[in-house]
Nucleic acid binder design. Sequence first.
DNA 1: GACTCTATCCATACGCTGTAAGGACGTCAA
DNA 2: TTGACGTCCTTACAGCGTATGGATAGAGTC
Lengths: 220, 220
Amino acid sequence: MKVENAERRETLTRQRVLEAAVELADRHGIESVSMRRLGQELGIEAMSLYTHVRNKDDLLDGMVEIVMSQVPAVDSREGWKQALRGAILGARGVLLRHPWTTDVIETRATPGPAMLRQYDTVMGILRGGGFSLDLTHHAIHMLGSRLLGFTRELFDDSPTLDAETARAMAEQLGPMYPHVAEMALGATHDGGLGGCDTNFEFELALDVILDGLERLRQSA
Amino acid sequence: MKVENAERRETLTRQRVLEAAVELADRHGIESVSMRRLGQELGIEAMSLYTHVRNKDDLLDGMVEIVMSQVPAVDSREGWKQALRGAILGARGVLLRHPWTTDVIETRATPGPAMLRQYDTVMGILRGGGFSLDLTHHAIHMLGSRLLGFTRELFDDSPTLDAETARAMAEQLGPMYPHVAEMALGATHDGGLGGCDTNFEFELALDVILDGLERLRQSA
DNA sequence: GACTCTATCCATACGCTGTAAGGACGTCAA
DNA sequence: TTGACGTCCTTACAGCGTATGGATAGAGTC
């Protein structure tokens, strides 16, 4: 900036604002990302952010863009199934490092460039694998958010609850919801479900869908 | 209430508050359901609502409960696959009539009775169909929100856009995202995707998962 | 009939949100 | 030197959920 005003901070850019917002969301959760709080984090007033960002939606769009652009390019030398698996798990890896992103993505009106790229990649893999346009379209719907590497967990079923509280919960649920109770109990049995590995569940579901797609393609 | 004060409205109950909230959400969208607006709708002040409802989260919980309790009981005389299909499509029918509900469900911390009932129903069908506890657990994860009758559409891909704008959009996307562009064009081709039937996509994906579950059960 | 108890409802206020409007100031080109 | 532009700030507004405390009315009890 200027030599004779060394204490003046580097002048802001849209990029720096977005990065600060991502970092703030990573540290304190997406709900802490308000214009005032973000300004505070950057040492400026809330309204000054509007120089770099159209409005809050634009800010959120940019945050998603920053995260999604970290998704690695896919290795396309493999068969379609492996390539697709790789593309999806690649996206998942990124989103796991910024868990707030999934919530924000679901509120976006239109996809940004990085999300379009992921869609294009997935579609390209399928088309290249011999899927018709129709079937590719079905596949996109089938995969849904999984294609971006996540599924929304409606509620924790892998809470770190000890066998004691699990039993208490099961006893309360038992009369009305016997199968839910059974499941709650089973989740703490050693050798049983034991913890519920979300990544394992994700990949299992993914493979079921991929196998289903393969069958649909063959029967078409 | 009182005869000599006929103009005084019926005194409110939690049930009437919740019903009014559901109706308001149906008419003007969930974002219009604020305490002030809901109070206005009922002819009382915002703070008076707190007599019948602990806080806004409690209100939303109750709204979900009202909707979900309309899900019809399942016909359990069929095989597990048909029964499961029926249970899920039954829930879907209800949620389609109150589209805001899916958004609210995804923000709930814990499931209410009606949602527990749906979970218990689904688990019961699977267990009765010979699924192990483990496999039932996997199935719940695989189905995810589909088990309640919905999947989040990340963005409209069946917008009512004429062939003209579709072509313009495709031309703009083409260079960067060829497959997305191809899909956008295909969506308006007559005889092609033509509109994208969300219900069809839902059932197709559901059947792929159900078939996958059947295979997993057989191989176990 | 006078008493208290309780349920219902209201008025006011606080801190938070996003952002519209308008002004101050430093930098740079003509 | 002047004018334009980019960056930032100040003030203000309407909306949100809700804490607090008070008004009113009906029911139950003496």
